[in-house]
């Protein structure tokens, strides 16, 4: 068993991948918790796909592709907010439109601009591509975002629970909203390398949703989510290594397995374990 665990650590690329996996496993569920409690889980998916045009353009211009992705991702959230506030169009339709158009633009640009980026690696993650520099960058982003969540916890709690009252009380809700969007976009960019844009949503939403079934307070949801995120992320990578399957799907399915366990056996809300209403005779 120990050999089984230690063997992948003999390779530099696996050490890098596991390090990023650990960081992403902690970060994604903590930031993702804010998406879930605001019923905006799909927004993570939208941003993840919307980074593609920026990535393609930055790559073409030999510009920092992470910065390009970030700008493009943020722009998509601005567009969604704009469509939603200026028209009768509801947020789900605005998200679907933005999602599909940005993603299409990205795929188109990658082709037209003759990019040598591997689309499959972007879409599904490629643990072989994780470098030491990536590990360092992921570490800084993770530390920064965790610090911000800790510092602004009470404001974020108020805003995500009751935005109208938070605004009425004088909190700068627009700044908070875009700050949150920036944090989510940064998280996605960090997560993209290991799980890919299509599946980063699995880590953002999966472990935190599982925790949502088990605990009653947001900070506990984040802590338990982070624990489950780390287990899913590392577990998925070992599966990926030994079964020679892409890391993204392995991580996403491991995370989903935990969700199913919680769904069936959660003490309060588990389908098999919760108290049933008494049947009338």
């Amino acid at each position: 068993m120990l050999d089984w665990l230690l063997e992948p650590l003999g390779y530099q690329f696996m050490r890098n991948a596991l390090a990023v996996g650990l960081l992403v496993g902690v970060l994604c569920p903590i930031v993702g918790s804010y998406l879930i409690v605001q019923r905006m889980a799909l927004l993570g998916d939208v941003i993840a796909h919307a980074v593609l045009p920026g990535l393609a353009i930055a790559n073409f211009l030999r510009f920092n592709i992470l910065l390009g992705s970030f700008v493009s991702g943020i722009f998509s959230t601005v567009l969604i907010a704009w469509i939603r506030t200026q028209t009768r169009v509801k947020v789900d339709a605005a998200m679907a439109l933005t999602f599909s158009s940005f993603f299409s633009l990205g795929v188109l640009l990658l082709r037209v601009l003759g990019s040598r980026l591997d689309l499959m690696a972007i879409l599904f993650g490629d643990i072989l591509s994780v470098s030491r520099a990536d590990v360092g960058r992921s570490l800084w982003v993770t530390l920064l975002l965790l610090l911000l969540v800790k510092l602004f916890y009470k404001e974020l709690l108020f805003y995500t629970f009751d935005p109208a009252a938070a605004e009425a009380a004088g909190l700068p809700v627009h700044t908070i909203y875009y700050g949150m969007m920036a944090a989510i976009t940064m998280t996605i960019i960090v997560g993209m390398q290991t799980v890919g844009v299509v599946l980063v949503i699995a880590l953002l939403v999966g472990p935190a949703t599982t925790a949502y079934l088990l605990v009653k307070q947001l900070h506990r949801m984040m802590l338990l989510g982070a624990l489950l995120g780390v287990i899913s992320s590392l577990g998925g990578m070992y599966i990926s290594y030994y079964l020679d399957v892409p890391s993204g799907p392995a991580i996403a399915l491991t995370s989903f397995a935990f969700f199913m366990l919680a769904l069936l056996f959660s003490p309060r809300q588990g389908i098999l374990t919760r108290r049933r209403p008494l049947r009338k005779p």
């Binding site: 409690v37 709690l157 995500t160 629970f161 909190l171 949502y212 009653k216 947001l218 506990r220």
Partner: peptide
């Protein structure tokens, strides 16, 4: 307007009044 499934306790809801 409120999502009553939000993971927050009654104490923390009242404490929101003191945020600003």
């Amino acid at each position: 307007q409120i999502d009553w499934d939000y993971p927050v306790t009654a104490w923390n809801v009242v404490m929101m009044a003191r945020t600003v």
